[in-house]
Nucleic acid binder design. Structure first.
Length: 565
RNA sequence: GCGCCCGUAGCUCAAUUGGAUAGAGCAUCUGACUACGGAUCAGAAGGUUAUGGGUUCGAAUCCUAUCGGGCGUACCA
């Protein structure tokens, strides 16, 4: 919000001085505090347009803006930076703004209600969700929350591949487990089958419903029953896991349903009409190489079945048809080879493929006590999302996944995530929130409230760290816009950690409540209350709880408690 | 081989998307508990941003070549 103010001042100034402006100029907080509160490169970028030297232009602008009483000083430095030092008054106004906004601090109409579709997780319905899905879930859900907060209209969707090869294998795998229950000894479990123990559980469940009945019907019917049962149960499991993780999808798009509605035939005929299919070796191909892909791709296999490519095109067509302004696909790194063909198909069908954004989430390595946790999907040795949540908790899990930018590989330290100490960043942030609450409670006990507080007295907040905290908080709205635009919610985690750190340091240095100095106490309460809002908003956007008090998990503390009783 | 992603302090990661002197946490070392939760804080030390070239007022960030790691390169999804 300060940014907006300065930005406007600059534009007004340019107009008054008849300076042509390069609109790409930036306004930022210099990392060297001596350079002021804010800094802009407007003069450097606009120099050429005006055929003047950057410093000459900068001097003119600075001279003009110095008249404005919001600024303590406007100076020119280096090759032509214009540095702003703001008056404390401006910061106090900002602080009042935060205090007024409370839980809606940071909320805006930046997105102008534009519809954004985020497709994420979209794991196969053939087993429980694993940690890869957990990362996707944390990422997509947080991004969606931020988008909504800044005024976009986001829609979370999970695409279910509930048809085809993988699902058939699932049915066969369940059948094996079912037969085993009835005494069949399976000497060799087929390598392509799903080995996970969850199928044994499902077989038991199915058996309590159906008993031996399924042994006496045709294989086709039996497998169909197996398939539908497994799909439904696994879907419910996935929904439950995600819910435990705080993720609720707006829609689960079923491939089977798309097929039933004739989307496959439709897509194939669209592609044929566009004159970009051909037959070769008994298969139907798409000329994807004509539209940017490295080679042509099979649409329909020699056995008459389509490849997964076709329903995927069909699915993406529905995304376009549903009128979204932006389409975001969150995928695993193993899918990047696949996207060019999808784009080429959309291009062939005259859809604007620049609308489609793909975010690749990189791999995760789990570490436990310094050792990498080995996982193997084929052997059914995976760490599931449920296990992770049970192990480190929803809050820590979400934070650790959000903490790294999507394009980076992620080393997840389980031991650290479990820790209930400041080494663990989640704990550190939540503790700051709880600590503020605790101070506020203390204030109530000391009968100090803000009821008779005059905001003019905010001038008591003159310590450098107080101003810096306010400044940091006022960056929050801009940060959210950056996150929305860049699709990189990890900034939220970094920000929350930094703000929490600033508070902890402040708390250690300055005493907040002192009945002998009422106005000072009130001013500081006013400040930390705002910090509480900012932290809580951060945490909520990450889907992490903002506790009012921390539950003590240190054994010695518990001993102390019980000793008191 | 080709394509995509990554390479920043001993370790895990940032860097306002091209800005000024590259920042945190952990680990290491030195300090601080008679006040609001020490579950915390203060300080020290730690760097040729993998390497070479280029683009410009200015590069960790963009281009290019090389090295190293991950992934992909199916009529699997």
């Amino acid at each position: 919000m300060l940014r907006k103010k300065i930005h406007n001042h600059l534009l007004e100034c340019a107009e008054a001085l008849k300076i042509k402006v390069n609109p790409h100029f930036s306004l930022e907080i210099p990392n060297n505090v001596n350079h002021g509160d804010y800094s802009t490169n407007i003069a450097m970028l606009s120099a050429k347009l005006n055929k003047k030297k950057p410093r000459v232009l900068a001097d003119k602008i600075a001279k003009y803006l110095n008249k404005n009483k919001d600024y303590k000083s406007v100076t020119v430095a280096g090759p032509g930076f214009i540095n702003f030092k703001l008056t404390h008054r401006i910061f106090y106004e900002g602080l009042q703004f935060i205090n007024k906004k409370k839980k809606s601090f940071g909320m805006s109409n930046y997105g102008e209600k534009q519809k954004v579709l985020i497709e994420f997780v979209s794991a196969n319905p053939t087993g429980p969700l694993n940690i890869v899905s957990a990362r996707a879930a944390a990422y997509g859900d947080t991004l969606s929350k931020v988008l909504d907060f800044v005024g976009f209209n986001s829609f979370k969707e999970f695409y279910v591949n509930d048809f085809g090869n993988q699902v058939d294998i699932l049915a066969e795998s369940l059948e094996i487990r079912y037969r085993e229950l009835h005494g069949d000894v399976v000497i060799e479990f087929p390598p392509e089958a799903y080995h996970g123990e969850y199928l044994i559980d499902l077989a038991v469940q199915l058996n309590t419903i159906e008993g031996t009945k399924l042994l006496h019907i045709s294989e086709k019917d039996r497998l169909e029953r197996m398939k539908n049962f497994a799909l439904e149960e696994l879907h419910n499991m996935q929904v439950a896991s995600l819910e435990k993780f705080g993720v609720i999808f707006d829609n689960w798009m079923s491939e089977k349903k798309l097929r039933k509605e004739g989307a496959i035939e439709e897509t194939l005929s669209y592609l044929a009409e566009a004159d970009c299919t051909f037959e070769k070796d008994d298969a139907v191909w798409f000329y994807s190489s004509r539209f940017g892909d490295e080679k042509d791709r099979v649409l329909m296999k020699a056995d008459g079945n389509t490849t997964y490519f076709v329903p995927d095109i069909a699915y993406h067509i529905t995304k376009y048809q549903r009128g979204f302004k932006y389409l975001i696909d969150v995928l695993g790194p193993d899918h990047h080879g696949y996207v060019p063909r999808l784009r080429s198909a959309l291009t062939a069908l005259k859809y604007d493929n620049s609308k489609l954004e793909v975010v690749y989430l990189q791999h995760i390595n789990l570490f436990n006590e310094g050792e990498i946790v080995k996982m193997s999907k084929r052997a059914g040795k995976i760490v599931t999302m449920d296990e992770l949540i049970d192990d480190v908790g929803k809050d820590a899990a979400r934070f650790f996944f959000i903490d790294r930018k999507p394009s980076a590989h992620l080393n997840f330290d389980l031991e650290l995530a479990r820790k209930k100490s400041s080494e663990n960043p989640v704990f550190y942030i939540q503790y700051a929130h709880a600590r503020i609450n605790s101070v506020l409670k203390k204030a109530r006990k000391a009968k100090i409230s803000l009821k008779d507080y005059d905001v003019k007295d905010l001038s008591r907040l003159s310590k450098n760290s107080e101003i810096l905290i306010i400044k940091k908080m006022l960056e929050f709205p801009t940060l959210l816009e950056t996150i929305a635009d860049s699709r990189e919610p990890h900034h939220l985690a970094t920000y929350a950690f930094e703000l929490a750190g600033m508070f902890h340091k402040y708390y250690a240095k300055y005493h907040i409540i002192n009945p002998r100095f009422k106005t000072m106490s009130q001013s500081r309460i006013y400040l930390i209350k705002s910090v509480k809002y900012a932290l809580a908003n951060c945490l909520h956007l990450m889907g992490i709880s903002a506790p009012d008090k921390m539950v003590s998990l240190k054994p010695e503390d518990n001993e102390k408690d019980s000793a008191n009783i």
